[in-house]
Design a protein around this nucleic acid. Sequence first.
DNA 1: CATTATATGAAATATTTATTTCATAGTACA
DNA 2: TGTACTATGAAATAAATATTTCATATAATG
Lengths: 283, 283
Amino acid sequence: MYNSDVFRRISEKSSMMSKSQNKIAQFIINHPDTAPFLTASKLASRAGVGEATVVRFANFLGYRGYPEMQQHLQEAIKRQLTTVERLELSSEEYSEDEKVVYEILNDDIQNIKNTIQRIDPAEFKRAVQAIIEAERIYILAYRSAVSLGTFLEFYLDLVLQNTELIRSADGVSEHLLGIKEQDLVIGIGYARYTRRTVEVMKYAQEKGARTMALTDNLMSPLIPYADIKLLANSEISSFIDSFVAPLSIINALITTVTRKEQHKVKKRLADLEDLWATFHVFK
Amino acid sequence: MYNSDVFRRISEKSSMMSKSQNKIAQFIINHPDTAPFLTASKLASRAGVGEATVVRFANFLGYRGYPEMQQHLQEAIKRQLTTVERLELSSEEYSEDEKVVYEILNDDIQNIKNTIQRIDPAEFKRAVQAIIEAERIYILAYRSAVSLGTFLEFYLDLVLQNTELIRSADGVSEHLLGIKEQDLVIGIGYARYTRRTVEVMKYAQEKGARTMALTDNLMSPLIPYADIKLLANSEISSFIDSFVAPLSIINALITTVTRKEQHKVKKRLADLEDLWATFHVFK
DNA sequence: CATTATATGAAATATTTATTTCATAGTACA
DNA sequence: TGTACTATGAAATAAATATTTCATATAATG
């Protein structure tokens, strides 16, 4: 299985390589994330050898032809993509049962990493700006996503005092009836996208309000109705969707908004401190 | 530059896609590290459409042909490979402001990594067992932690139907008055630990119920009253605490409980599916 | 320094992959 | 319910890519 690994084969046979073959091997090793995408003739010219030599090189390593070698190079790159952080869960050290927790936490690390890749800084900036400029903010979240909505509402309302979470599932809330163009609606939608979230987003957009979606991918049904799109991955080895990466994005939103509005927020937080102290809210 | 991004183009045009084109878009988005390596015909069969439709899809997105689209998909994957590990925080590429989001997400990765280090598999196992054995489960969460509580309640109640979230801050809820030894109280407490959470945990333990704490460290005021202790880090460069790692632990809890109780849970989930279908809850 | 063996690349050929064509199925609209 | 319009995939054709051939260069051997 593993002897299919191109790099292993190269190192095994490196002593028997001709001058040109060495050039090719060198190129592949020095450009591991370019080589898998090249055609035989491109690889040839990049490595400075003839086309035929490349094909012979593949045969030399034991492949049936260049495409087979190419495929194995691609496999290697794919493994890299998916297992970056994979812990050694294979051993017998832990029972099936105990592995789950490690598996899930690693999946979630991967989710955040993939989310980082997909961040569009300009779009994120727009999201922050929209929150700051909004007169009122409505957060749409149903079912399990209510947890995310609750968190976002808690902090946005703490610092801006103009945020409200819409969670009742029946029809468009009365609160949204008077929605204005200066208002912002943030829809949170994952996996089994709740129909209601989509409907309300659509309604808000038709009313001319700004809309923002936090969802898992661009094919999500929320996307067509979102002026601002934030993506965060949610896949874990479970029957549930993970809200870890979206929550991290929310952390970032709250933090950035607060830093930008520091001058306004500072006094309010200080006042709150006094209030909390008076009522002994914290230990 | 960025308009070359396949995913962006897909989202821009997603509203004008036909049924088959949607299938293709769906496939590409759901298999971003497989799609770039497929030939037009393989992508066609994997997405369940004709070969010609794939070529037309590439044209539809504005590419001169399939190979051009493929190349752009490969670029995206290459970018990922080279940047996953290195943070883009060093350079002047991003403004102070744009860095925050990368900073926070990386902090959260670190939180999960540290949390993994601190997992005690035996203790985690006890936590799962306690949840399964409990007659009734009460979750204590106040203020921002309500979000975590909501999530945990949602799924535990979904699969076990014996869970309740206590969130009102005034005194000990009436629900807890009749608490028994076979019941379990799960307290979630972070940073500015709310006094109320601690008091209720103490009350529950005095009444003989089992107690479990999800908190950030062993010095947390919840710890003395917890029979079972789960730790998850929460520090990020912000004025708020991050619930990302605790949420990941909750993911793991829910997943493990559900897998262990599969025989009981399976039927219930199937029934729920029917119910949801009847009421068109999902898009 | 011949002589043989081996390696090499340009060009010819074979194979694979992409594109276009065309007949038909599916939709939208009157 | 018929008519026009659009979308679709199987098959034909075109283009790109891989492999083989063959003449020549290079190295190895006595």
